[in-house]
């Protein structure tokens, strides 16, 4: 150490301003990160015309009906679920188990979703999700009646 120089003068410079800058930038980055909402997808196949050569599935189809609730508060936003003739009410969490029971554990049994036209999409997706949870592989939407009017 040279004579006359203080102890602190030889220490490397630590710039607090830049340090705080970077810390703040990192803070902003991690605060903004959750707003970049990640999107997921639920893939589904629509029914195809397989031609006369295809063998029709002889197994009984499990039919899931989704109808809007008629009574109570916010009835339009709620829905009732039905698996074949079993009424589940609004409890969609039981749907996977009911579908498995109706299919007798066979994941290849066709499942047809028959939502009411006025039902909110969230309930349709819940039913589709429950079919995926039940590991059903042949889930399709029931064909609607033929279209007549052209929507603008």
């Amino acid at each position: 150490m040279a004579a006359g120089k203080s102890k602190f003068e030889d220490e490397p410079a630590s710039s607090f301003t830049s340090m705080i800058d970077i810390v703040f930038l990192l803070l902003i980055f991690f605060i903004l990160q959750p707003f970049k909402a990640k999107e997921m997808k639920l893939v589904n196949e629509l029914p195809k015309d397989q031609g006369p050569a295809s063998t029709p599935d002889t197994r009984e189809t499990v039919r899931i009906r989704i109808v809007p609730a008629t009574i109570g508060e916010k009835a339009k936003e709620r829905a009732n679920f039905m698996v074949n003739s079993t009424m589940l009410g609004e409890n969609y969490e039981r749907l996977a188990q009911e579908v498995r029971n109706a299919a007798k554990g066979d994941s290849e049994v066709p499942v047809a979703l028959a939502p009411h036209p006025a039902v909110h999409f969230v309930h349709v997706l819940r039913a589709l999700d429950q079919c995926h949870i039940a590991r059903m592989t042949k889930v399709s939407f029931e064909a609607p009646p033929p279209r007549t009017a052209v929507k603008k």
Partner: peptide, 16 residues
């Protein structure tokens, strides 16, 4: 177009 996918929200994403 027989293959369709419905977009869903990440169940682990925080509510806005």
């Amino acid at each position: 177009l027989w293959r369709i996918a419905f977009a869903t929200k990440d169940p682990n994403a925080p509510e806005k």
